[in-house]
Amino acid sequence: MVAGEASNPRDVRGVSQLRKGVLEFCVLALLRDRPRYGVELLDALADTPVMATSQGTLYPLLSRLRRSGLADTFLTESASGPSRRYYELTDQGRQALEEFSGHWPGFRDAVDRFLDPGAES
């Protein structure tokens, strides 16, 4: 790609659609070991650039996770400002993550077979 040239909008949309499809499970995975607050989740996702997202995407997703029973919240006092809302995995969220984790390798391998021209020989 030439410097300054815009990337193909279809490429951006494709990555965006992939991210939307797995972001919920990446967030659940981040909550697997310990509760986290929103900015902490944003930072952890940004550590992998393809998963970086915005507050405008993350907070509605967290609300959906809470409403669907996959995550719960609690407030904790913060020494550096207002109380922080932490999100934690529920038993139902842990089960959903385990189910996704069980399906993911087969799904990933199936897509890789389509993408690798030599895989179907």
Score class of each variant (00 low, 15 high):
Leu28Asp: 05
Gly21Phe: 04
Cys26Arg: 06
Val2Ser: 10
Glu5Asn: 06
Lys20Asp: 14
Asp47Val: 05
Ser54Thr: 15
Gly38Cys: 04
Gly4Gln: 03
Met51Gly: 03
Thr53His: 01
Ser78Leu: 08
Ala110His: 09
Ala52His: 05
Pro105Arg: 15
Thr48Glu: 07
Gly69Ala: 10
Leu58Ile: 11
Ser83His: 12
Gly4Phe: 06
Arg66Thr: 02
Leu61Lys: 01
Arg19Tyr: 08
Glu5Leu: 15
Ser121Val: 11
Leu65His: 00
Pro105Trp: 11
Ser54Ile: 05
Leu30Arg: 03
Glu88Lys: 02
Phe114Ala: 14
Ala6Asp: 12
Pro60Cys: 10
Arg84Leu: 14
Arg13Trp: 04
Ser80Asn: 14
Trp104Tyr: 14
His103Pro: 00
Glu5Ser: 14
Arg66Gln: 08
Lys20Thr: 10
Thr57Phe: 03
Gln95Asn: 09
Thr53Gln: 01
Ala44Glu: 14
Leu75Pro: 03
Asp43Val: 02
Tyr37Met: 05
Pro35Ala: 08
Phe107Trp: 08
Asp11Gln: 02
Ser63Ile: 01
Gly56Val: 11
Phe25Leu: 13
Ala29Lys: 09
Glu77Met: 07
Arg84Asn: 05
Val50Gly: 01
Leu58Arg: 06
Ala46His: 09
Glu40Arg: 06
Glu88Phe: 09
Thr57Asp: 05
Cys26Ala: 15
Asp33Arg: 08
Asn8Ile: 13
Ala29His: 14
Pro9Ser: 09
Tyr87Trp: 13
Ala3His: 01
Asp109Ile: 01
Leu70Ala: 03
Leu61Asp: 00
Arg10Phe: 10
Ala29Gly: 15
Thr48Val: 14
Gly38Leu: 09
Gly21His: 03
Pro117Glu: 15
Leu89Thr: 03
Ser78Asp: 15
Ser16Asp: 10
Asp11Glu: 09
Gln17Val: 13
Ser54Gln: 13
Leu41Asp: 01
Val111Trp: 06
Ala79Glu: 15
Gly81His: 03
Ala46Val: 05
Gly106Arg: 13
Tyr87Asp: 02
Ser7Tyr: 07
Lys20Val: 08
Ser68Gly: 11
Asp47Pro: 00
